[in-house]
């Protein structure tokens, strides 16, 4: 399989505080990769190092073989244009309507005419089920709608890679399920590679092809592989504890929640 993202010997450090040491993993083309772990273990820090917000202290992040942090600013920009990010709270620009939020990346980086951009904006909003809300401001929407609108913006440029930061945080179970389905559809139909940061077990088992489990105490990744495989085969009590929500029940119970 072709690795789209390779993370090599990555150290994440805040000032003097070590968050994670020696991270190594590959994200393959077309898979849904989950970065999981308890609160405060450094999931979001890792994500920020991958999407170019915080430089890591040591190590490399390679996109299709090109090192992200070793290149110049222009090289980073080129890589960044290939991915979309859905932030935790949607991170919509509050002074723009939903339509304008989605249209902005298209105006910046596409060669479409104004009308085509308008059509495409409505299409993207339609894909996330917000087709009728183009003229609304983010403040007028609920949290779940804002998140979906954020997704519409993240996929505006048809990115090869989509990053999700806690997609189901703050959503009701049905909306969370809808978002999970949407993630699967995006992967299947747009052929995008997807990286999800989450600790929601339901999502992890529904969408995850491959995963890495970060542990705050050992400051390292303690497990890697498909979530279902890990649950069935892992011998590490910490992994089992995380994947069964602290009790050693059958996974089916967790999945149905």
């Amino acid at each position: 399989m072709e690795a789209v993202i390779e993370v090599k010997n990555l150290d994440l450090v805040y000032d003097d505080f070590v968050v994670m040491r020696g991270l190594n993993f590959n994200v393959n083309k077309g898979e849904i990769f989950i970065i999981m772990g308890g609160s405060g273990c450094g999931k979001t820090t890792l994500l920020k190092a991958m999407i170019g917000l915080n430089p890591p202290q040591k190590g490399k992040v390679l996109y299709a073989g090109v090192s992200f942090w070793d290149g110049d600013e222009q090289g980073r920009q080129n890589i960044m244009r290939r991915f979309g990010v859905l932030y935790q709270g949607g991170a919509l620009w509050s002074s723009l309507t939903l339509g304008e939020n989605v249209a902005l990346p298209l105006q910046l980086y596409s060669n479409l005419s104004g009308l085509q951009i308008q059509d495409l904006t409505l299409l993207k909003l339609g894909l996330v089920g917000l087709g009728g809300y183009a003229d609304f401001y983010p403040a007028e929407l609920s949290g779940g709608m804002r998140k979906r609108a954020g997704l519409a913006r993240a996929i505006a440029l048809d990115p090869d890679i989509i990053f999700f930061d806690e997609p189901s945080a703050g959503l009701d179970p049905l909306s969370a399920k809808m978002l999970d389905d949407l993630i699967l559809e995006l992967r299947d139909n747009l052929g995008a590679t997807i990286v999800v940061v989450t600790h929601e077990l339901a999502s992890i088992f529904t969408v995850g092809d491959n995963a890495i489990l970060l542990d705050a105490d050992s400051k390292a990744a303690i497990a890697q592989g498909s979530p279902k495989y890990l649950l069935a085969n892992s011998k590490d009590p910490r992994v089992i504890k995380f994947l069964t929500r602290g009790k050693s029940k059958e996974p089916e119970n967790e999945k149905s929640q």
Binding site: G126, G131, D135, F136, E185, N189, L190
Partner: peptide
Amino acid sequence: PQVEKLLKLTPAQAEKIIPH
């Protein structure tokens, strides 16, 4: 073939615009 799939995914009718 993926075009057809994606076409199905998009809402068939232009959704009713919710007046702002």
